[in-house]
Amino acid sequence: MEPLLKARNLSKIFGSGCQHCIAATGSEAETNVCPHCNSVVACNDVNFDLFPNEVLGIVGESGSGKSTLIKLTHFEWETTSGELNLHRSALPDGLGELLADTVDQYTRNLFALSQFQQRQIRNALMGIVYQNPYLGLRMNISSGGNIAERLLGAGWRHIGKMRERASELLEKTEIPISRMDEPPKNFSGGMQQRVQIAKALSNNPLLLLLDEVTTGLDLSVQARVLDLIRNIQSEFQLSMLVVSHDLGVINLLCNRTMVMKHGRVVESGLTDQILQDPQHRYSQLLVASQL
């Protein structure tokens, strides 16, 4: 089986950058800030394959570059360098030109596409859920409206069908349909996350990006959101990138995991191996400091 998505040499540097940035940062240097030019190397030389129906975990401490990877993959930030290739079979109709000059089964570098094309890909194939629901939802328009807006972006036009789809998704994420016309600002944190998930699923994405979606929620609320994600995983045919600093969440959701520190992937492997036989010093620390 071939990967759905291949990421190669992803780097993101904030600042002017200099010739020392890479050598002077990373887990050995114990910083992601270049001492010569003060640029922040948010991530460097990250490689991963994401397979169909796979859930890949990204774990690491605050500032290690986890969210950066999500933002690059979601085309929210421009990469400093690197390639992202999508398996051709995943492409929706009408995006055929993206494979014009490829010889293998993959698109050319998605980072090199125009913003318009990137938006097309994002609308057709991706869904995202942020830690902060304010980033993923418009708090003042109805929950149904939030979903309809996303469907419009994905090319839907029929109001009745959009409403039907919205109620179907809200039901799936256990939001009472009676509250569909209420804005998310009226909802609890856990409900807001579930509306975000409903919205992210609305276009039937092949790739779901989850960035610390349970962080900050009460344990029982966290449990419900995690159960929902597990159900989505078994019911929908999609791949996920799951970012968390919580090894418990990673263990529950992911078969494979990457450990990040100071903008670098210091270790990647089967999740049970990372948890029971961590190789890198930092992974060992992470596992040892679990509650």
């Binding site: 049970d272 191996q273 029971q276 036989d277 190789q279």
Partner: peptide, 9 residues
């Protein structure tokens, strides 16, 4: 056993 299952490298 864990090496066979690759829980240990």
């Amino acid at each position: 056993l864990k090496c066979i299952y690759r829980t240990y490298l």
